[in-house]
Amino acid sequence: MSEFNEFDQQGSVPNKDTGSIISHAFEMYKGVFLYAVAAMVVYIIGGVLIQSISGFNSAGFAEGIKDAGGDFSNFHYWNAPGFSLYITLSGLLGLLLAPLYVGLIYIVNKYNTKNPIEFSDLFIGYRQNFVNILIYSILSGLISTVAMWLCFIPFFFVYPLLMLGYPILLFENATAVEALGKSYNIAKQNYGTFLGTTVLGLLISACGIILCGIGLIITAPFIMVVMYSAYCAFLGKPRQIMFNK
């Protein structure tokens, strides 16, 4: 069982503009990046296991894309050995690890409020509102996937509407539909700020690619911290979650 205690006076809140939110996220990320890396390591280990189970050769697949030279008319990626199983298992992995990313948001909140952090905090999403986190992950994943299939660019215009979902699920114990609706309504009313925040957050998260890809372990989770900072900016300081042990 969990109980919600009102948030105390500690903790910073950014202004309702892109620059302030991103700056706030940077400050938060500097204090929790080791936990973010831990979450990414779990994801990478899961990815390696999935590739081993499926028999999919990602290196060979990438080489095939490179050799195609931009002409993909004869490149049948669904026929690649193990590709279908790999995609299926990867989707399942992403779904099951969604609570881990929620846990990172919880750790950011504890850092912001000067509360002691425990490694077990990373797994709070598996105890707090777990089912709704999974449902929201499915719904937001479907929406994002459809947007990406539409020439990819629409994804950047749709994703801002989903930015507050995970923090709402965690701090307000909302249902998946409530989180989706509330995130959509707030982002729609402040769309310019959310669009700029999302694009910058995603670019920063992806910048680890330039470090031979390995840098993604450090930068990829940044977008989750941006979600927390955006929540603070538009919904105020969240309530602290306390668990009876």
Rank of each mutant, 00 (worst) to 15 (best):
V158K: 01
S2R: 07
K30C: 05
A233E: 14
G181R: 05
N173T: 09
L34H: 05
G125M: 00
I135K: 09
M227T: 15
N5H: 12
S90M: 12
F130K: 15
R127S: 09
F72A: 07
L100E: 11
Y159T: 13
P14M: 08
I168D: 02
F33M: 13
N15A: 13
E6D: 14
G31Q: 13
T219V: 11
L134D: 10
F119P: 09
L216C: 10
Y184A: 08
K182H: 08
P154N: 07
A36D: 07
I53T: 09
A39G: 11
D121T: 09
N173C: 04
S229P: 04
F26R: 08
I65L: 12
G141M: 01
S183H: 02
Y43W: 12
G192K: 00
M1N: 09
L235A: 10
S73T: 15
M227V: 02
D8M: 09
E118I: 00
F222P: 09
V37Q: 10
T145N: 06
L95P: 04
G60C: 06
A39R: 03
S120F: 06
G236T: 14
M227P: 04
I218Q: 02
S205H: 03
Y166G: 10
A36Y: 02
G196T: 04
K188R: 09
A98Q: 14
V177R: 10
Q128P: 00
L142K: 03
K110P: 05
Q10M: 12
N79S: 13
I153E: 03
T145K: 05
N190D: 02
I45C: 07
V42R: 08
W149C: 09
S140P: 00
I210Q: 06
E63I: 10
K188E: 00
Y86H: 11
K188P: 00
I117Y: 07
N74V: 07
C232R: 12
A39S: 12
P154L: 03
I21W: 01
S52R: 14
L180N: 02
P160N: 02
L211V: 14
F61Y: 13
L180F: 07
Y126F: 12
Q51A: 12
T18L: 06
K114I: 00
V41M: 12
G165I: 02
V226R: 03
L161V: 01
